[in-house]
Structures are given as C-alpha cells and as structure tokens.
Design a protein around this nucleic acid. Structure first.
Lengths: 214, 214
DNA sequence: GGAATAGTGTCTCTGAGACAATATCTA
DNA sequence: TAGATATTGTCTCAGAGACACTATTCC
C-alpha cells in the first residue's frame, strides 16, 4: 500500500536530491593519522583522488552504505563508521544535487592492504568534491574519540605497554605527551596482565589490557 | 548539460530516499528547556504532535530548509539551525524511505507566539516519527553549547545581571549551580556596563554584556 | 535596624604539568 | 658496570566546589 498525499502523488513524484555517503577511513601510520584514498580510473572525476563513497540505496542504513563503499571501492572491511554530518554545498558535485553524509572510521593499519594509498589526514592534498574537508573533520572526530579514553578502536592491539599506548595517542592527537601525566591518566582504566615486554634493552615494561570489555 | 553515467543514465534515473529536515526549536520557559511542537490537523499523522519539518527541495541548503519548515509550519523565524545528525531508521516513516536530517535551534521565548505549543524538551511526550529522540538530542546539543560559554544564543538579552544569566544556565543545563563558582567562571568573558539593576529589594546587581561581539 | 540580595575571601581537593630520583633490565 | 628504559615521588599551579563573611540596597 503506497502512501499518496492530498493531490494523489507519492513521495517519488517529487524532485529531490541524491544522497551519498563518503567515508574517511583513518589509521595510524608513521606516527600520524592517515586517511585512505583511491584514484578514480574511469568515468566522472577520473584521475583524481577521493574518499571511498557511494550513493545510498533505498532502504539501506547509512552505516551499511558506508561499509559497502569501503568494501566495493577499496576492498577494506570497516569497523564502525560514525556519522560526521551532512555536507550540502550545492556546488559540491557537478553531476547534480548530491548531499553527502560524511562518515569516519578508524582501524589498525593491519586491516589495510599493501596496495592501499594513504595520505596525511589533516593535509590530504587535492581531493575530489569536499573530501579534504571531510578528512579534516574526521581528524577532529578521532581526536575527540581518543582524548579521554585509552584505546576505543583497538589501535594498540589487545596487550600493550604504556609507552606503546602513548605513541598511539600522540599519533592521533598530533602532539607529544608527557609520559608521567599520560601514565597516571590512563592507569585507572587499564588492567595489568602480569606479563612484561621483552627483547629490547632497558627495563621491561609491564603489559596492560583494558579494564572493562572496552 | 546533464551528466550521464556509462549506461547513459542520469542521477534521477536511480531510486533513492527522500530527505527531510526536522527542527527541534528550543527555548527556555518555566526554568527549563522546552521544544516547539505542532499538531497535524489533516493528512498523514493527523492529530498527533510532531516537530516542524519538511522535505528538502532540490538545490536547497539544509539550514534553509530548516528555517523554511519553522516559518511555514509554525510561523516562527528561526535563528541559526544546527545539524544534529541524520536519523535513518528504515521504519521511521510509514510513507516510504525518508531520511531526516535533524536540526536544533534555540531562541528567546519572546520570539515565539502565544499560541505556540511548547513541551518539556527532555520528555516531550508522544510525538510522531522519531521526534522525541530528536528533541532529546537537541537538549544535549544545547547543553554542550552553553556549558563553557556565557550566552551564545542571547537568551538573557543584551544586558543582564549575573543571577539572571545563572538562571538561564540552570534552565539549559537542568541543574542548580553555585553562585560564586558560576560568577567566577563567567566574569572573564563579560564586560560591565556600569549600570545596575533596580526596582527590587536588596542590593542592586551590576549589569553585564558580552566582552567580545559574542 | 532588619530583611534581602550582591559580591568576595578563603580553604580544600583534584588533576595537569614538570622535574628528577629510583628501579630493573640488556650488553 | 654502563647504558637504556620503566616507574614513581613530589612540587607547583590552576580551577572547581563549598562555606561563610562582608556590602549595599529597600522598607
């Protein structure tokens, strides 16, 4: 049973914008946040780099569309895409009126393939559409996510030393941290495994996991 | 010149969701945040209360659609609608697949008419669609907006005593504040006008304005 | 003077930040 | 033992929070 308004029209009878999702998939590499881009080989905007994106299907959840874009465009399995907001500049897409629901995701480097192209997320260079702005917004999102939590996206693995965790935070936040302050701030939400790191010079560091499930 | 893809189709040839905006217009009344609702008299969902909303036109900015919804549905001039996020539950609208870009706005009570219906924003009662969830999200938005700023939306007017400002904050945040702490936290971003309040018993209070333009 | 409200002094507690001392490993 | 890294003690500073005292008005 299809709904019709007072003039007998359905929703489909009205002109309306297209809806896309674009995903800034972040990871930590070389001590900083980088974002996954791909180069369009054929068709619209061929030769330029862009974030993976796709049009949203009818009846599809936005988060599912974001995961589908990651899978189909760059062959990566996402983790948990989160909405950043809708980018609605009327001139953002030359093909027509396209709203983009920007998403961000953050995964360990191991989830990506060797062939994937990563660029610095805060300064991604020339990208199609408004994708550079989306990447920068994703950086803010990641920083808010990590500021008061040990490792919500598991970038440090299941067991880690405090120094390894500090390196992760420094990469995400983009600034150096003081080791003693960092340590005291994190300790409350970590649990000691009892094991220690080994193999390097110096005093072995204790290994930790998350106190709660995550 | 209309863009066509490899199979000769335009964007309009693909099925896609409709896009709506819904606006939680907040104000402070009776010492708390309230949200503007209206009752649908005819057509879909007649008899139930909902937030003002409308379908987004092609080429229309989302913020403009939000202002248009406020103007056309409830006759109120909005201030500065801000995006809360996209609500995308496939079952949220029985008419078909409709994404709602939720917006929040916050204006002084004087902007509203006497006939407008306001309900407590954190507990708005039965509303159509997912509008109760949008209203609650708007409350969080307003609280974040006011937590570290004196009066970003001018709820206290252009000149105010510290106690009047405190009442505004208590209404927005939903909790009582300590006057001396509040005072010291705010003073840095306020400027004394030199004038004092008068007319009531007790020591007259100094009047303040915002130090920067806003 | 007394009631009422405005404004301030001060103490405590907490956490960030910084510095440096101590502990424990490898080579 | 020397070098390297991990871990902790402690001092300072700033701000939140709480309490109570002082100040200034109206009646």
């Amino acid at each position: 049973m299809i709904w019709r308004d007072a003039s007998g029209r359905t929703l489909d009878d009205y002109p309306r914008p297209s809806v896309a999702v674009d995903v800034a998939l972040l990871t930590v590499r070389d001590g900083r946040l980088e974002v996954l881009v791909h180069e369009r080989v054929t068709g619209f905007e061929a030769g330029r780099r862009s974030l993976p994106g796709t049009f949203v299907h009818v009846d599809e959840l936005l988060a599912d569309a974001a995961l589908r874009a990651l899978h189909d465009k760059v062959g990566v399995t996402g983790e948990q895409p989160e909405q950043l907001g809708v980018f609605d500049d009327p001139a953002r897409d030359d093909r027509g009126r396209v709203l983009s629901v920007a998403h961000a995701d953050l995964v360990p480097l191991e989830r990506l393939g060797v062939a994937d192209t990563m660029v610095p997320a805060h300064d991604p260079g020339d990208l199609s559409f408004d994708h550079a702005a989306i990447a920068r917004r994703a950086v803010e999102w990641a920083r808010d996510l990590y500021r008061d939590r040990p490792d919500p996206r598991g970038l440090a693995g299941s067991e880690f030393t405090l120094f390894e965790l500090q390196r992760v935070h420094e990469a995400v936040l983009g600034e150096r941290l003081q080791k003693d302050t960092f340590r005291r701030r994190m300790l409350g939400s970590l649990r000691e495994t009892g094991a220690s790191s080994s193999g390097s010079v110096g005093k072995p560091a204790r290994l930790f996991t998350h106190a709660d499930p995550r």
